[in-house]
Amino acid sequence: MLLFVGLPSTLTLWTHRSESIQRRAFIPLSILVLIGLGLTSTSSTGGQVGGIAEIGLYVVGIVGILCIGIYLMVFGGVTPVGPVPRGWRTTGGLLMISAVAFGGILTIEPEWSPLVTPDGWNSYAASSIVGLITTSLFGAVIVWLYGDQRWMTLIGLILTTSLGLIGALLLIESSILTKADISEGLTTAIGSIFGLLIAAVLAIGLMVQIESKAVVPRTSPPLSKEEIKRMEQLIQANVRSEQE
């Protein structure tokens, strides 16, 4: 219930305007939903939903570290708005690497690690790799088309894509991930993109249809001769007082 109603509901609240009551309720409700998910994961007896709640908590940790890292990396450099001192860029880079390392440790599950990988984590890891490869490659093509000699970004993105592909192959070779995990991730990625496109096209079409049939608000009648005369008098009076 929390996962399938709570999370979409909080997401819906987040889409409201910042000064609205719904948006103000977003943070406390999100915290309540996360606490609920945490309680579900610890009290579960190994069911699917409990597993997902456990994965959700790890994902919140990884994404949180990643967010802070990206924020420090982006705003610690040469930006028109730079609220973070320059020295923090290295810390941001380290945090980004830590987030990837944390995800990697959970996926590989080495013997020395005290962390217990929740059920279904492989599906998350495989989807992450598919998302990483797809977005990096698309980003590389965009940067290449944009030009402006952004070689460093281009090389970085090609390296990320290659590392993602090599990583996927190595994880499959060492039987940590299965080919079926990658296959499901790919199918979900394609299906989700198609679904979002269909949803966007139909929603925009519906809104345009409804708005185009809306009643046009009544416009005010044109100014009468008396009103124009009064306006002229006011302007003349103002101009004269300024000249004096």
Binding site: I52, I62, Y124, A126, S127, V130, G131, I133, G185
Partner: peptide, 9 residues
């Protein structure tokens, strides 16, 4: 889980 994975990547 897969949506979360794709979004993280």
């Amino acid at each position: 889980i897969r949506w979360a994975g794709l979004a993280t990547g």
